[in-house]
């Protein structure tokens, strides 16, 4: 079933993501694809995640289509101008890709090619708007397309903010993205059910499906690192303690993830698991969360 249909059917949707490697070796991604096949409703492919140059999202999504999976083509605004973005969207459609997730993308200075020229010719709202235009049969400049696209467009939102301005801006941006054509949202990783509940109380008015983001904890160090460095991610101290006391960190990390999913699942329409190296453990997490 396509991701769009899965969301429309009202079932609790599960998506996850894979990150291509730096190089032409696709064996790892294909192995993960084999394991995930039939177990999830969609697989995001990250686009030069953290501004680190790798195999592209478009090519990897195409491989997933060939394997019979439902890819979500992540597209950042960082590396391509409006000509390249639209052209890649046409290519994606031709290759059978139907879901696009639009993000602005980490700045080049955070990645491994720090002197690269940043692009951001379009911002995420404008790219969403552009895809909507293309779905209607026109390019951004208003020219007619010989064969239009048919994309299901997603966007991201950060439910946990550290300033009032940021909280209000995230909601305002969500509304703008919906007006521009976004039809589902994936969130930054959430670790506190009550904070997410507060966010969803305000976001529910938009009536657009939200897939809550979940990142399995692997260690105390990882939790502390994210708290310090990753915007919008906050792992509360009791959870870090629980992880610290556990003998088998992997088992504990999976258990916490499954528990989180269960705590969050009644508040939203799906979960997006960002496994970061634990992609092969996603079916196990789903089993533990009684979603499989």
């Amino acid at each position: 079933m396509a991701l769009k249909e899965a969301l429309e059917s009202g079932k609790f949707v599960v998506t996850t993501e894979v990150g291509p490697l730096k190089g032409t070796d696709t064996s790892e991604v294909m192995e993960v694809a084999e394991i995930l096949k039939g177990k999830v409703d969609g697989v995001n492919v990250t686009d030069q995640q953290s501004a680190v140059m790798r195999l592209g999202s478009l090519a990897t999504c195409s491989l997933l289509v060939q394997k019979g999976l439902e890819p979500v083509f992540q597209m950042t605004c960082r590396d391509r101008n409006r000509i390249a973005l639209q052209s890649d969207l046409l290519s994606a459609h031709v290759l059978g890709i139907r879901n696009v997730l639009v993000i602005s993308g980490d700045f080049p200075s955070l990645g491994d090619h720090i002197d690269a020229k940043e692009v951001y010719d379009l911002d995420s709202e404008q790219l969403i708007w552009t895809i909507n235009q293309m779905n209607g049969g026109q390019d951004l400049a208003g020219n007619e397309l010989q064969g239009k696209t048919d994309f299901f467009v997603g966007a991201v939102v950060k439910p946990v903010s550290d300033t009032d301005a940021s909280t209000e801006l995230q909601l305002a941006m969500m509304e703008k993205k919906i007006n521009a054509g976004a039809r589902f949202f994936q969130t930054q990783a959430v670790y506190e059910a009550d904070v997410f509940e507060r966010f969803m109380k305000r976001a529910a008015q938009f009536k657009v499906p939200v897939l809550v983001g979940v990142i399995p904890l692997k260690s105390v160090g990882m939790a502390r690192y994210m708290n310090k460095n990753v915007s919008g991610v906050f792992v509360p101290e009791p959870l870090i303690d629980e992880m610290g006391k556990a003998e088998d960190k992997t088992a504990k990390g999976l258990e916490i993830t499954a528990r989180l999913i269960n705590d969050l699942k009644d508040m939203c329409q799906g979960v997006h698991i960002m496994a970061i190296g634990w992609e092969k453990k996603v079916p196990e997490i789903l089993k533990m969360a009684k979603l499989a």
């Binding site: 993308g105 911002d123 995420s124 709202e125 941006m173």
Partner: peptide
């Protein structure tokens, strides 16, 4: 990033 519609995340 020179974003025109609002902040990134």
């Amino acid at each position: 990033k020179g974003l025109l519609n609002g902040p990134c995340g």
